[in-house]
Amino acid sequence: MIMNETFLEVNDYLDLYLLAGSLQDKAWQQQIIGKMQDLPKEKVQREKSLNIDELAKEFRMINTDILDLYHQLHRDPENAGLRDMVSRLEQRRKYLMKKIHAVETKLQHHSSK
């Protein structure tokens, strides 16, 4: 779906570019070229933003699962299987935190350019 939106944006800019050319407005054509050059950057930022949303959703789900397992462990503190599941989920949560931080850092870096 995002690819279709980008395709439409490019076509729209090309139409405007041609219109500006028919009006012999060179300055407007240059502005349109500048906007078209920014399209790939905007697409990358949208994709990274979607990626962060997916990572954050998984992070919240893992937190919910960990909380549920803690409640189960409260009822059955000797259950090694539950402790193992909590440990694996905590490791996954740490990985997601690092991944989210890395993507956010890249987004900030790209937006400052």
Rank of each mutant, 00 (worst) to 15 (best):
L107V: 07
W28L: 05
D65N: 12
D53P: 00
K48L: 15
E42W: 10
M61N: 14
Q37S: 04
S111D: 07
Q37A: 09
K99P: 00
I100V: 09
D68S: 12
Q31R: 14
R92C: 01
M1R: 14
N79R: 12
P77I: 04
R75N: 10
M85V: 01
L39R: 05
Y13F: 09
K106M: 01
R93I: 06
K99Y: 08
A80L: 12
S87Y: 08
L50A: 13
H110P: 00
E47D: 11
K35T: 08
P77R: 07
K113D: 08
K106D: 07
L96I: 11
S49V: 02
D15M: 05
L55A: 05
A27F: 01
K99H: 05
E47Q: 13
Q24M: 02
K94W: 03
K48V: 00
K41R: 15
L16V: 00
Q72L: 12
E47R: 13
I33P: 03
H110A: 15
E9Q: 06
K106W: 05
G21R: 02
A102I: 01
M61F: 06
S87F: 14
R93D: 08
L16E: 10
L19N: 14
L50T: 07
Q45R: 10
G34N: 15
N4V: 06
E90S: 15
L107G: 02
S22N: 14
I66R: 02
N11Y: 02
Q91A: 15
